[in-house]
């Protein structure tokens, strides 16, 4: 094997490898998508963040406008403090509403921003005051069960009172016309 041919083949290997790396970084990974330009940071307090994690997307109208930077715990109010980095290109009014949503049935959680109508805009270091917590499945189920229980209680009472009910009704009906 001639030396120059060896060099050629090694060059081919290196070129292919580097090309594959860049393809992995840009096509498979989200190097370009995850890059935010200049950002500003706002915080939001939540009573319960569910499964929200740092680097989770922040979306408004379904468009990714930022990322969750860090999540801290406030020991004075016992609330989660979520720091959000929003791309400088997107300005939001001061009374923007921050929710924690779940993507799909079992998907990852993200922060959803719903713009309000205030003229003043959110600045770096501001706090979003209107927030809605993550939906915790166990809470929802227990609430549902509680509602069912109270419903069946109120169902039971009329059946006990049933003998009296027609009488009351007839007096009501009887009273009004005459």
């Amino acid at each position: 094997m001639d030396r120059s041919t060896i060099d050629l083949w090694v060059g081919v290997l290196v070129a292919l490898g580097v090309a594959a790396f860049f393809a992995l970084a840009t096509k498979v990974g989200n190097l370009t998508a995850s890059k935010l330009g200049e950002t500003y940071t706002v915080t939001a307090d939540f009573e319960n963040i569910g499964g929200l994690k740092p680097r989770a997307p922040v979306k408004s109208a379904g468009v990714v406008v930022g990322r969750v930077d860090r999540i801290d715990f406030d020991t004075k109010q016992y609330e989660a403090v979520v720091s959000i980095k929003i791309d400088q290109r997107y300005a939001f009014p001061k009374d923007t509403f921050a929710n924690i949503y779940t993507a799909g049935l079992l998907g990852e959680q993200y922060v959803g921003l719903e713009a309000g109508g205030d003229d003043e805009l959110l600045k770096n270091g501001d706090k979003i005051t209107q927030t809605q917590d993550a939906v915790v499945l166990e809470k929802m189920i227990s609430q549902f069960l509680y509602n069912k229980a109270s419903e069946s209680n109120s169902d039971n009472k009329p059946t006990e009172l049933k003998p009296e009910a027609p009488a009351a009704k007839s007096t009501e009906l009887g009273d009004v016309p005459f």
Binding site: A25, K27, V28, G29, N30, A33
Partner: peptide, 18 residues
């Protein structure tokens, strides 16, 4: 196929592979 892949594969995964 490609968009879901890009949404879930981080650049860190690629550097970790290296």
């Amino acid at each position: 196929f490609w968009s879901q892949m890009q949404a879930n594969v981080e650049f860190v995964d690629v550097t970790n592979m290296l």
